[in-house]
Write a protein that binds this DNA or RNA. Structure first.
Lengths: 240, 240
DNA sequence: CCAAAAGTGTTATGCTTACACCCATGC
DNA sequence: GCATGGGTGTAAGCATAACACTTTTGG
């Protein structure tokens, strides 16, 4: 493997002896609000796929790392910061973008319901619209973003079953029933209440806040997850 | 995200309005021969890192997919074809290559001992040397290939524990003791013979060939793995 | 007092683990 | 006949899975 020569013209052009692909990052951001699993999409302002919905993302700058680029794009396009991010997969089919060869490194992100609700989600630095969509009721997506999203959903299911990161989708305080509802929505199956509680509590990553959620019926204990839960799971992170 | 204009000069140069990274694929290829877990490395023929050992790999061509590129590089540089390939991770630290911004999509590959031994491993299309190295006794590696290889080794351990893909490292026929030795080498721990056999046979992915390995002592039954074994990505459910 | 969600234990089953001896062959 | 690796079963402990009723509140 040998390197291509590279120089810059006065007119800010970049010349290479071999063609190069573009490299983008895209982000699949999940949260759980209003009893729905949701993902953040951007409505495209220009061709190709004008007006269609797409994952937030953009070009990787020359001086930034990939995860850094994903965090930056998320912040610029949606105002979302301080988010759990991990690399999902790199998609590089030569035909995936009609404009040319674009390889995209996709990141997987989880946002707490608190943060999601605090966001005024209607466009960031450009005039694009951003909106939360129910994962089970999506619009038609641009590019190959449909299969990418499905793959991210698989990863999310896997995370929920094998790690404690489900907490990252919830507000800071939640009841066990709410937590169970998240699991049931994402895994698409009903769970046994007693077994669920026993297993979650045995994992020793929750603590009672001492307060209760008052409502129509019997008040429910509120829990938060302990800092330990996050470290523990980051230690178990399978993709660096 | 908007696309850069792009045109080609008569002198076969490629001009872009924005700088672009190079994109390479690298492959971590594992096999198990002579009682050792081995990986294939290439000795670099020029700068940077002249004479140092590195993962096989090279630039992604504009018209080929990523996995396709990985397979091609493997074939060109080492003569290895017909191999299990899966994407491992994409590394894109801006400083990882002294020549400029190079993002590499790394693939993880498993080669059967049969194929590994049939290979005359001494350089492919260029005059670079290729050689198998014991994973636990590696030379100093070029670029960031050391941590990449460690990450691949983690993935291999995970595969061995959770899937049946360990078979792909072995010759077509093998004894249970040989199989156990592979597991012990890769997982770096001793396994109980009876439990190992019970578990492997219960997985129902092996069949007896009917013949025996004759040797110094009592002949051992030879097994092969069934086609079914490859699909079986074990999914132990966390919730009922 | 009724509706609705919160909360709580026990049992059967299957899987995992630990463990020691006989068998078949070559020399 | 002995050295060497091949091959086999069982019991204890642990985690999982199935299952139904009582408690607390608001209206």
């Amino acid at each position: 493997m040998t390197m291509q020569s590279q120089r810059m013209t006065p007119m800010q052009q970049y010349i290479y002896n071999h063609p190069r692909p573009s490299v983008t990052v895209d982000v699949v951001l999940f949260t759980y609000t209003k009893s729905e699993l949701r993902t953040l999409l951007i409505q495209r302002g220009g061709p190709p796929y004008t007006d269609q919905w797409a994952l937030p993302g953009g070009f990787v700058h020359m001086e930034e790392g990939l995860e850094e680029a994903a965090a930056r794009e998320l912040l610029e396009e949606t105002g979302v910061g301080d988010v759990y991010l991990e690399q999902l997969y790199t998609f590089g089919d030569p035909q995936r973008d009609p404009r040319g060869r674009v390889i995209t490194v996709v990141y997987f992100a989880l946002l707490s319901a608190d943060q999601a609700e605090r966001l005024a989600v209607t466009g960031g630095d450009d005039a694009q619209a951003a909106a939360w969509w129910n994962v089970y009721d999506l619009p038609h997506l641009a590019f190959d973003h449909q299969p990418i999203l499905e793959y991210a959903l698989q990863r999310l299911r896997w995370k929920l079953e094998w790690t404690a990161l489900g907490f990252l989708l919830l507000p800071a305080q939640f009841t066990l029933s709410e937590l169970q509802a998240v699991y049931e929505t994402i895994l698409k199956e009903a769970l046994d209440k007693r077994n669920f509680r026993r297993k979650i509590l045995a994992a020793d990553i929750l603590e009672e806040t001492g307060s209760y959620r008052e409502g129509d019926h019997r008040p429910a204990k509120l829990y938060r997850f302990t800092a330990k839960a996050i470290e523990l799971e980051q230690a178990r992170r399978r993709f660096p």
